[in-house]
Design a protein around this nucleic acid. Sequence first.
DNA 1: CAGTCCATTCGCAATCTTGCGAATAGGCAA
DNA 2: TTGCCTATTCGCAAGATTGCGAATGGACTG
Lengths: 106, 106
Amino acid sequence: MARKGKANTDAVEILHRRFFQGKPDRLKELEEARANDQVAHKIYELRTSAGLTQAQLAKLIGTTASVICRLEDADYEGHSLGMLRRIGAALNQRVEIRFVPIRRPA
Amino acid sequence: MARKGKANTDAVEILHRRFFQGKPDRLKELEEARANDQVAHKIYELRTSAGLTQAQLAKLIGTTASVICRLEDADYEGHSLGMLRRIGAALNQRVEIRFVPIRRPA
DNA sequence: CAGTCCATTCGCAATCTTGCGAATAGGCAA
DNA sequence: TTGCCTATTCGCAAGATTGCGAATGGACTG
């Protein structure tokens, strides 16, 4: 990194152009919405296949049914790792986080 | 599910006993600490292998270096899906969430 | 019909994360 | 040593999630 001199700041701008300006904001929002929906649906799936109601799962993790309902809402954007782990722990599941490289379109 | 009658509430208590009372609190804390450490280390890894400083990554996602530093701290517990996705987007990575069943010890 | 269970939505307080600047410390080279 | 770059830590304001009760509506059964 010592040899590159001022190239680093250029690299930042190049990256910024690639991944933010290059991609329309609306497309980013769609991706996030899809991801949130997947998490919400996964929570619903885990809960129902465990034969639990929202109130029952809520009691397991020490909260109320309305909170669970909120998490299962596809439009919810505030998922935290802590909450996902609480739910996972109650349902005997481990939460795994992975960063997977995105193939750039040709 | 209609046939089980009051069995559901019992199931809740059984689950609670299994996954919360059954497992010492200290062990749970250790697991969470390890998980947080993994996320923090992964962020550090992605950033450095992209050849970026904390300040540069911060600029890419629209924040400051101290925020990045906080996220890379192994003791940090407040990881949110939103922040992980912001970092992933800047580094061309998709964040994947998976619930994987835990094998119970015999 | 009434009654029950379940899911959903709303409102607000409490708690937590985020944003950001400033100060401190470490490494490395001139 | 000084100078520069980087990382780390602190403090506080702003914003977001969580906690929780209450009210609503849907589905089903007696």
